[in-house]
Design a protein around this nucleic acid. Structure first.
Lengths: 354, 354
DNA sequence: GCCGTTTGGTAAATCGATTTATCGATGCCG
DNA sequence: CGGCATCGATAAATCGATTTACCAAACGGC
């Protein structure tokens, strides 16, 4: 019989030929240097003084062993994970997934990865909040709440001292934000309807009935005032097709029904258009509809939808850029994107009133 | 002058009242126990024997200090990050973002987070590949390549020994996969056109011209053969509206142009529909179009698009479930989702031939 | 030939949690 | 009262990389 084995653990084979993953100590051992040299060389530490032949030898061994640093160990040591959190209100909404696509692209270009979270889930699920926000997994968070998640989440994240950028949301002055020029977009859409000759122009907005300060409401109101027109009815139209469909009839229900509507979100505009048709109105014959945000299918709807295009991908990109600056110690800023300015795309859903 | 300070580091205040984040040693010290107790208690180690008053005290201190474990340290020690990678071909494509939404929901429900990557970028960018696939950041990867990314990436990931699930892609028998019943869907759409009386039915497929084995091609062909009809023309229609628009004219260009087309992807169907109209054909008068995959706006197009709905979110959910099983040591499987079976939604883009 | 500097590295602490082996103090049994 | 369990913990190794402080050897200047 064998004598009692004092140590049941595997005897730790010194080098594994491709079996497990090579560690920095494996590289160091194989190259005959200390791990410090390997780390400092591979990270480009410019205070490292090293002979050329040693350098080549270490690099060759690292390549040979297909050494890739363990990012988790790096993250622990450096207190920096190289991961950014992105909390989105509704990933399946094409408007928001467009933002996500831009953010993903910019993050990848900067060597960061994106950890995806659902904004509502983050607000609701405490275990998830702890893990994502307070678990040191991410270096910063992009929060795109839509208008679907209560304000409290912002304070909770802020109090966890996690660098935070609000995406198209300027709820709090002390938190960095990147936003589109929604007001200009809404103004442009409204102005278009005014130019067509409409005088009774309603608005389907995103937020709650009392949210009078929404930027898109402001743009609409400013255009009306500028033309000396009265404010038409305004109502919540939400973010989705169904919400838009439900809201439109109520908007037209009043004593002086509008002949044109500005809709804050292209998805609810789709619903509104369908609802109009179902209640016997023709678009644009009886009702003109103009929406904020272009999505690829808007041009293929029946009728094609007149929209104002805003640079959604750019919003994603700039949001990532903003949080990276924040991580570099830059001060909190509020950024508005007006480089590709809002662009009116006149299609078939708007026409002069009869 | 002050004497030379031997140590420039902060003297490491033993407990920080809410300043930095509390560590497990802070909790242990404050509760008068060792870190081991805190860890084992909080993780529910059932071999831990602890007095009730000690338990209460530790829990109280942990709550008081708002202790949240550092997930990075946990991940390093346990060699498990609690993060799943999700590589998607095109996040802004609503079909794929629907899968993503389902995956995100299931991951969150299982206590996992999702790390997002672009499939093409992963294949192209070596630094990103190393970091994401070989950096121990993720416990497994869901790969949804669409047909836009070469096969090589699968082998590369597999050889990194990262648990992998292919999403709607059965390219390799030795890699786990979860797929929709695309063939049945395509068959259903084709059958619908046959039932309407069409006898010349073309097909716009996803992949390359030579990809004759695609499941949707098979469904289309099987339906035609079953009805004793000849195979109409088939051509690549891609994943996007533009690709579909470019392909349609060429499909109709032959000697016996089809009176109906099955399109493998709803987005290219939108493009095809627009292209048809632009070349003077009426849909469905002159050309019927049926597509695979439902997206919310299909019903609002002009004309509303006839589609076969497949459970895309469920695909995302089941893919996550599949990789979690793999992590639990379950064997590689190929799963087909046919629980909510493919459903034909007849709308306005299909009609009997003239 | 002595001392200071540069070269080319290394040793060791550290990040924060997990986990296994161990251990002192009681309790219990006969 | 002696010996053995059981209770209620703890010490210390470990995960893999980074980084600071330090150091031996070679070199250079006078």
């Amino acid at each position: 019989m064998l004598p009692a084995v004092p140590d049941k653990r595997q005897p730790a084979r010194p080098s594994r030929p491709g079996n497990g993953r090579a560690k920095i100590t494996d590289v160091a051992a194989a190259a005959g240097v200390s791990p410090a040299v390997v780390s400092r060389l591979l990270r480009g530490d410019d205070t490292l003084r090293i002979r050329d032949d040693t350098r080549e030898r270490v690099l060759a061994v690292a390549a040979d062993l297909r050494y890739t640093p363990n990012e988790v160990a790096r993250a622990l040591r450096r207190s920096e994970s190289g991961i950014l959190g992105m909390a989105v209100h509704d990933t399946s909404n094409p408007v928001y997934s467009e933002i996500l696509t831009g953010a993903q692209a910019e993050a990848a270009a900067s060597g960061y990865a994106l950890l995806l979270a659902d904004a509502a889930e983050l607000a609701r699920n405490d275990a998830m909040f702890e893990q994502v926000v307070r678990g040191n997994r991410i270096d910063g968070l992009l929060l795109q709440r839509g208008s679907g998640t209560a304000d409290g989440i912002i304070a909770r994240i802020a109090s966890a001292r996690l660098p935070l950028v609000l995406v198209n949301d300027r709820t709090r002055g002390d938190i960095a934000s990147v936003a589109l020029d929604d007001e200009a977009a809404s103004h442009l859409a409204t102005r278009h309807l005014i130019d067509l000759g409409h005088t009774a122009i309603g608005h389907l907005k995103l937020g709650t009935p009392k949210a009078r300060s929404e930027s898109r409401v402001r743009g609409w109101r400013r255009a009306l005032h500028g033309a000396g027109l009265p404010e038409g009815p305004q109502l919540r139209g939400g973010h989705t097709s169904d919400e838009g469909a439900a809201a439109l009839p109520r908007l037209l229900d009043g004593p002086a029904p509008p002949t044109a509507v500005v809709v804050s979100n292209v998805l609810s505009a789709v619903g509104a258009m369908t609802a109009a048709r179902e209640s016997g109105l023709r678009v644009p014959g009886d009702l003109s509809i103009a929406a904020v945000h272009d999505v690829f299918f808007a041009a293929h709807l029946s009728p094609p939808l007149t929209v104002v295009r805003l640079p959604l991908r750019e919003l994603g990109r700039r949001s990532v850029a903003a949080i990276l600056r924040l991580l570099d110690g830059a001060p909190v800023r509020h950024e508005r994107i007006d480089d590709p300015p809002p662009e009116l795309l006149v299609r078939g859903s708007t026409a002069p009133p009869r």
